[in-house]
Design a protein around this nucleic acid. Sequence first.
DNA 1: GCGACAG
DNA 2: ATCTTGTCGC
Length: 230
Amino acid sequence: MKFIETPADWPADESAALAVQDELRTRVVLDEPGPQPGAGLVTGVDVAYDDERDVVAAAAVVLDAATLTVVEEATAVGRVAFPYVPGLLAFREIPAVLAALESLTHNPGLVVCDGYGRAHPRRFGLASHLGVLTGLPVIGVAKNPFTFSYGELGPRRGDFAALRAEDGEEVGRALRTQDGVKPVFVSVGHRTTLDNACSHTLRLAADYRLPESTRLADRLCRRALAEATA
DNA sequence: GCGACAG
DNA sequence: ATCTTGTCGC
């Protein structure tokens, strides 16, 4: 377990955070295919909060992409760095996630996080932000649609519908990972294509609606929070 | 101006 | 995210 250090220059308010997003968004790389689905390592990251006690816990779980076997786990705990503001989630989660990722001994490979990447009001959600700061390929898999809408999609695993911005651009996809179950919302963060992001998501969600990486990271950060709070 | 709104 | 019991279904 590692202690979370919030960067000294972390934005203190919403307008400062917006300025940071505006600057960093230009550094997102979208012309790389990214890791091949099913090969190498995939790392799930997640964060849990106890706002009452101002405590945050993050977890990073490294999986073998082919077998979905756990290769390594890391956690970090500390103080909450930013309030939850829709559109500024990254400022709340990233210091904790970075701390967890930094204590890993393995190269994370593809990082999978909760939330969005390009499917964001300013095209710079958590997955994009994390990607730019680490240089790693990152995708975002969210449980709920944000401000974007999507059309009807088939009922079977693998069926999907585009998540489109006002200008018609496809910023992500609503992807059905299990037959007859509510879809997840996939978008590119950094250094991957949307097609590959969806392929990875489907492979990781072999048995449940959510990717195994997120399920394991979620369990681990909750456990770390409980221990830190106890 | 008001509401909606990833985690 | 988090607060929380029972309950419907395989």
